[in-house]
Structure formats: structure tokens, C-alpha cells
């Protein structure tokens, strides 16, 4: 590949590693659980890793387990995974600018645009002197690797782990809180921060915990449309 240096890729991975540590810890519980549930359905570690490497969508992968146990229904699976991941379309809109000049990594960055890479791309600062695309690649690549490795490990170890990991997944919540605070620090961002929290909270209260994301996204669009000359 032209215009890409292996050395810079390595620098990007090294620079991204510290900010991805919370994700690694945050995923221990859910990754191992996923592996255990998959092995309960008869899928070994290689299957879990194959799902993770190809799908890379934790929430949907977990939702797919009972659906697979119920029988073969690819159409329902397709529709479900589109709607469960519908928010990713908004992530894409939010990252159009940042991901503009990221060739040749762009297809991979889009392929793996889950919650965690998105929030790091939005809030984490690429190091000085390194083109941001190497940093974006580094953090996406690392999170992608963690997910595949942890879900694979879960299928092997899940049953024999004795260390009490209850509560470890709070690391993800904590990470998102910090990334949110970084957005909040920027005064111009505050109205949008408030819209995001308020609309989602309201939607959660009205629609319940399983279907509130789509109404929340729709509500945000309406508010941003109405406030397009003010916010």
C-alpha cells in the first residue's frame, strides 16, 4: 500500500493503547459471558471468534443467541440487526468529517464502527505529530482484537473462572462518562449534550428499556431540525 508506513501504524497502536484499556476491562465480563452462552448452544471458541470478527456488534451478537436457539430465521435476524444497530448510522454522520481522509483504513474503520470505537474517535485526542488516521486505526484495531479474543476465551474458560468479576463491566460506563465529560468541557457542545441526555432519558421512561433507542434518535433529529439555526 502506498502512503502508509508500518512504523506509523505501530505508533498509532501504541498511542491508542492507553485509552482502550477501559474497554478491555469493560468487556471481560460480557465477552466471557458471550463465549459461555455460545458454548451452551454448542459453538466452540472458533465459532465465537468467527461471529465476533465478522459481526463485531456485541449487543446484537448476544441478542442473536436466543434467536438461534429458537430456530433458523435469517430474515428476522437481518431486520433485527439493522434496527439494533440503527444508531451506528448516526455515528457515521457524526464522523463524516473526522473519517474523511483516513484512506486506506477507512473501510475497516467503517466496518468496525461500534459504540466504543465511535466514542473514542469523538472524544480521545490523537497524539501530536501523528496523522489522526493512524490513531483511529490503532484504537479500532485494538478494540476489534479484544472482542474477538475475549469472546473466544469465554468459550474455553468461562466455566472455570473463579475470580468474582461482578461489577467489572462498570468500566465501560465509567469510560463513557469520562468521554461525555470531555464533550461537556467544550462550552459550545453543552446544548447538544443536554439534548442527548434529556431526550434519551425521556424516551427510556416513556418506551421502556428495550425499544427506546429509535424513538430517542428520532426525537433528537426533530429537536436538531427545529433548532438548526440556534444550536
Amino acid at each position: 500500500m502506498k502512503n502508509v508506513s508500518a512504523e506509523k501504524i505501530w505508533l498509532g497502536i501504541k498511542a491508542a493503547f492507553p485509552v482502550t484499556i477501559p474497554i478491555l476491562f469493560g468487556w471481560v465480563f460480557v465477552g466471557l459471558t458471550y463465549g459461555v452462552l455460545m458454548s451452551g448452544l454448542g459453538y466452540g471458541p472458533l465459532w465465537s471468534m468467527l461471529f465476533s470478527l465478522l459481526c463485531f456488534c456485541g449487543g446484537m451478537q448476544i441478542a442473536a443467541i436466543p434467536m438461534m436457539a429458537a430456530g433458523f430465521d435469517p430474515l428476522q435476524m437481518f431486520i433485527m440487526s439493522y434496527f439494533v444497530n440503527f444508531r451506528h448510522t448516526f455515528y457515521g454522520v457524526a464522523l463524516l468529517e473526522k473519517y474523511k481522509d483516513t484512506a486506506p483504513f477507512k473501510p475497516f474503520l467503517i466496518y468496525a464502527l461500534a459504540d466504543e470505537p465511535f466514542s473514542l474517535a469523538v472524544s480521545a485526542k490523537p497524539p501530536e505529530g501523528l496523522e489522526p488516521k493512524y490513531f483511529y486505526f490503532g484504537m479500532t484495531f485494538l478494540t476489534y482484537l479484544y472482542w474477538a479474543a475475549l469472546t473466544g476465551l469465554g468459550s474455553v474458560l468461562g466455566g472455570i473462572i473463579t475470580f468474582d468479576t461482578t461489577g467489572l463491566d462498570f468500566a465501560l460506563n465509567a469510560l463513557f462518562i469520562v468521554l461525555f465529560l470531555q464533550q461537556w468541557k467544550e462550552k459550545n457542545n453543552r446544548p447538544a449534550c443536554i439534548v442527548g441526555i434529556a431526550v434519551t432519558l425521556l424516551s427510556r421512561i416513556i418506551f421502556g428499556s428495550s425499544v427506546f433507542l429509535i424513538p430517542a434518535l428520532a426525537g433528537m433529529l426533530i429537536i436538531f431540525w427545529l433548532g438548526r439555526n440556534k444550536l
Binding site: 448516526f90 454522520v93 469523538v122 465501560l172 462518562i177 461525555f180 461537556w184 427510556r204 433507542l213 436538531f224
Partner: peptide
């Protein structure tokens, strides 16, 4: 050229979606 409204969404969505993700974490 990307439509103006989409450019504007590109600016306001990152903070708003971080808010959405935080609420989402605590949904249960």
C-alpha cells in the same frame, strides 16, 4: 457537497450521542 443540515448534524451529534450512550449504559 454534504448538505448543510447534515454538516450541522455532524457537529451536534457527537456530544448528543455521547449523552445517549451514557443513558443507555444505565438503562437497566
Amino acid at each position: 457537497e454534504t448538505p448543510k443540515f447534515v454538516q450541522y448534524l455532524g457537529r451536534v451529534l457527537p456530544p448528543a450521542l455521547m449523552g445517549l450512550i451514557v443513558v443507555y449504559c444505565f438503562k437497566n
